[in-house]
């Protein structure tokens, strides 16, 4: 799995951090999401898929390999 973040779309909701705190964080200054690990380990994939699905800006795109 590879994570692509469309940063200008991010609305800083932080839903991804709550769904998958190992993989996502937010910038302090504006809350925009940060991908900590763009190719996360398999055991984190469910959380990442949840994060992508609940992102209110549809800013997280997953390329499943």
């Amino acid at each position: 799995m590879r994570i692509e973040l469309d940063e200008p779309k991010c609305v800083a909701a932080g839903q991804c951090v709550m769904a998958s705190p190992e993989v996502f964080d937010q910038r302090d200054e504006d809350g925009v999401a940060i991908v900590l690990d763009a190719q996360p380990a398999a055991e984190l994939h469910d959380g990442v898929r949840e994060a992508a699905a609940i992102c209110p800006a549809a800013a997280i795109h997953l390329v499943e390999q």
Partner: peptide, 8 residues
């Protein structure tokens, strides 16, 4: 206008 950690 607050930092994300505070809001969370």
């Amino acid at each position: 206008g607050m930092p994300p950690k505070v809001i969370r």
